[in-house]
Design a protein around this nucleic acid. Structure first.
Lengths: 334, 334
DNA sequence: GTTTCATTTGTAACCGGTTACAAAGTTGCG
DNA sequence: CGCAACTTTGTAACCGGTTACAAATGAAAC
């Protein structure tokens, strides 16, 4: 049988209260007693059961992470890493909830499985409606957003998508590109926040720049579809001289399919990504770098502040992005 | 204030026991009473607090996943997905613990943060020593291994690494390759179980096959180092005609660096990966496919059986692997 | 030697359900 | 109608710590 606090108290010749204090508030126990208790605890193999502490404090020491899709992609993996690193040290655990689609999301907020089961909810890369926010509010669970600055969130950390795309476009335009294509993967409308901001920025800039031609390709996931896009690019009357991809993970396969279709990068077409993820350096991909691990760590700190009743002075943070120039972009030929 | 079971009992005009039963063992409550209680609960916005149930049952409804490294790579991400899908339905949460290095691992087993905090520990892709196993045993926490068949585990799910490498080698040898290089990333010795099995198989086969030349390259992570390996390959007096990579993620960057060094795939050299991960299909990489999501789901089921005291009939499972032939491998020139 | 205040320790109520046990209510059947 | 057997509900102990409050101890001040 597992040793209880009473066993330890008896063995150390003190009260259960003293044992409890030894572990939860050691400064309230005299050096001498503390040592005695520690000894008794070690001999009995005692350790504080977390469940009892949880019950009494009413806190679950658990934070839920919601993310769109069912796959943990590069970005989500980094978010988990960043959150975990901070939360773990503060005594909180992270529990991840993949939200496949809009329906799943609705179901989540209806059932609210985190009710009395998580101290806070962190949402990555998708928006939350007013009604859903209210559900959480009424359950008194703080809501923190990553990569989303919707006013629904008590706190948020994100990047300036618009600014980042502007930087990318200015870079390409300074190289001389005037016919640029933007490629992104189709997504369930409300599940991907940042997508809109980036695409909007692309359209805005193209609209504002005289003589600028911009095309948007939204592709389904899958090799074949990507091939079709390439076909379209190859045959386009006025083929774009540069390709700006919504994420690196879209850009990388193009390196191969392009080649198979007789197009060289960057000779025939420049390619830019977004994220500076895994293989970007390997393939020499020019991209916009962001640091989701750091952002997530920041988000975790905000979350803990909210849980523990310390309203953060500045609850809406913007993480920096930077342009990383590699070999996949050059001035257009001719 | 959050409504308690007593509030509901009073409102519904029944005892707290009846309310409790309504939620935990509905079949013990009459239809009529149940409805009354449900109604009262809904009106008060009552929901069963998990912590109290946890305390009473002694179970945490939480499973810990340990994995080597600090990064969630493709494989680990898939494992998390697979585990989560099954665990969640059974009412368990998954908590992930990255174990950076051997020291961190030792620290983990010494402190045993899962004590009274997790109902089971699942270990992905690394071995656990006898002493560490005993630590857990004495804490009465079942230990399940993924991609590791060490006898230390109460249950395990893995692939037959040796068989898989044999399949790959036979395929390459049947194509005519007699000079094959194996490439893997250096790893902390005890943190990567499967590595050994694969490398051992490679060496064994090379040794058994007359006229076979096999070289092993262990590289550090990083673009530059990979470049150096390529240099070595290019200049090798008898350059290998095929490259077998320990994981796809090693193979993929080679597609670029090879090209930059004037080598064509598969014309000058055939390349094979292992995993069939993210970009393998995109680049036409011949590889060994495994399904870590399915394996992890299986592992989760075994884990739950162990937690709930149903010893699994067959606790050590082997997941299938298969050869996926794409365009990166051909018969050697000449 | 008191009085006062700070430190250390003990007693017991409490967190919020769960469940063993007992009691009350129903139904079936001779 | 009486009694057995089953269903439904209530009472209260219990899970394993935490903490408010009180008491005891010790040190400093008068």
């Amino acid at each position: 049988m597992k040793a209880s606090i009473e066993d330890v108290a008896r063995r150390a010749g003190v009260s259960t209260a003293t044992v409890s204090r030894t572990f939860s508030k050691p400064h309230l126990v005299s050096e001498h007693t503390r040592r005695k208790v520690q000894e008794a605890a070690d001999e009995l193999g005692f350790f504080v059961s977390r469940s009892a502490a949880i019950l009494k404090s009413g806190r679950m020491y658990r934070v839920a992470l919601l993310f769109g899709g069912t796959q943990i992609d590069w970005f989500t993996a980094r978010i988990i890493e960043g959150l975990n690193s901070v939360l773990r040290d503060a005594g909180y655990d992270l529990v991840v909830y993949p939200i496949g689609d809009d329906e799943a999301r609705q179901a989540f907020f209806d059932d609210l499985p985190v009710r009395g089961n998580a101290d806070a909810v962190i949402v990555s890369s998708f928006d939350v409606g007013e009604r859903q926010r209210q559900r959480l509010e009424q359950a008194k669970v703080p809501l923190v957003g990553i990569n989303s600055n919707s006013p629904a969130f008590s706190a948020s950390v994100g990047i300036d998508d618009s600014q980042a795309v502007t930087t990318a476009m200015h870079y390409l335009m300074n190289l001389g590109h005037r016919n640029i294509a933007y490629v992104y993967e189709k997504f369930s409308n409300s599940l991907q926040y940042s997508s809109h901001a980036r695409i909007d920025a692309f359209e805005r800039i193209c609209g504002q720049t005289p003589g600028m031609q911009g095309t948007i390709y939204d592709i389904d996931p899958g090799v074949e579809v990507r091939g079709a896009v390439i076909g379209a690019l190859v045959n386009a009357a006025e083929r774009p001289t540069a390709l700006l991809c919504h994420q690196d993970s879209i850009a990388i396969p193009f390196f191969f399919t392009m080649q198979q279709n007789g197009l060289r990068i960057p000779g025939d077409i420049s390619v830019m990504g977004f994220d500076d993820s895994q293989f970007a350096a390997d393939v020499g991909l020019t991209t916009i770098r962001q640091d989701p691990v750091a952002s997530a760590a920041e988000a975790a700190r905000l979350t803990i502040d909210l849980i523990e009743g310390r309203p953060p002075e500045d609850p809406h943070l913007m993480s920096p992005t930077s342009l990383v120039i590699r070999s996949s972009t050059v001035a257009p030929a001719g």
